[in-house]
């Protein structure tokens, strides 16, 4: 009886603690999805506002985006492992996987910066044409989310290092997990609708 009620109590605590958190994170994701949705819509409207700039076929280099895509999408997997190892109370592994996730994200972000700099070098600056502006806004905002995610992961590293597998840390991981998988899935849409579809427009 004693053990049973203990288990029941701690499960209940965990549920009570992370359930409102989960709800609110999903609601936050709804808001974020609407923001990105609006920017996707803007991008598609701007497909017809090329000015004297290039069209999507000329502008997007499909081959160069494959590596960053692989980096970012695999970071979702490493994050999943980080979350699982936290639940198993394997602190060292958790720290390793958070670090790996952050590194993959950092790799993605540096490749994106290189792409931006290349674009600017070719004369495709922010204000070249409405089409290119909308591309920068959408991809740039996603990049900001990745950057924010990296900073967040740095914070999580500190939390895990100092406190280990506590209830509060489980809650933090739940929140960040939802955020990070969302950021990745936005990239899937960017990859498909901008880079891949751009080859056929």
């Amino acid at each position: 009886m004693g053990v049973e009620s203990n288990v029941e109590n701690s499960t209940e605590t965990l549920l009570e603690y992370s359930s409102p958190r989960k709800t609110s994170m999903f609601l936050f994701i709804c808001a974020e999805a609407v923001i990105f949705g609006s920017l996707f819509a803007t991008y598609f409207v701007m497909l017809h506002h090329l000015g004297d700039g290039p069209g999507p076929k000329e502008f997007f280099k499909f081959k160069e985006i494959i590596l960053p895509t692989i980096l970012l999408l695999s970071s979702s997997l490493t994050w999943y492992l980080a979350e699982k190892t936290l639940h198993l109370r394997e602190k060292g592994k958790t720290l390793f996987f958070i670090g790996l996730t952050a590194l993959l994200a950092l790799g993605f972000l540096s490749l994106e910066m290189i792409e931006f700099l290349k674009n600017i070098g070719e004369g495709y600056t922010l204000s070249r044409s409405p089409f290119i502006s909308s591309y920068y806004l959408l991809v740039g905002l996603h990049g900001c989310h990745v950057l924010f995610g990296i900073l967040w992961m740095a914070l999580l590293l500190i939390h895990v290092k100092t406190k280990g597998s506590t209830v509060a840390n489980h809650g933090r991981f739940v929140s960040f997990g939802i955020y990070w998988h969302f950021v990745d899935s936005v990239w899937v849409f960017i990859f498909l609708l901008l880079y891949a579809l751009g080859q056929f427009l």
Binding site: T42, V45, M46, H49, L126, S129, P130, S133, L137
Partner: peptide
């Protein structure tokens, strides 16, 4: 961005 950073998504010759 249109107002402070010189993009022309809503305005200008080619904006909407």
């Amino acid at each position: 961005f249109d107002n402070q950073f010189g993009t022309q998504i809503f305005s200008g010759e080619h904006g909407n």
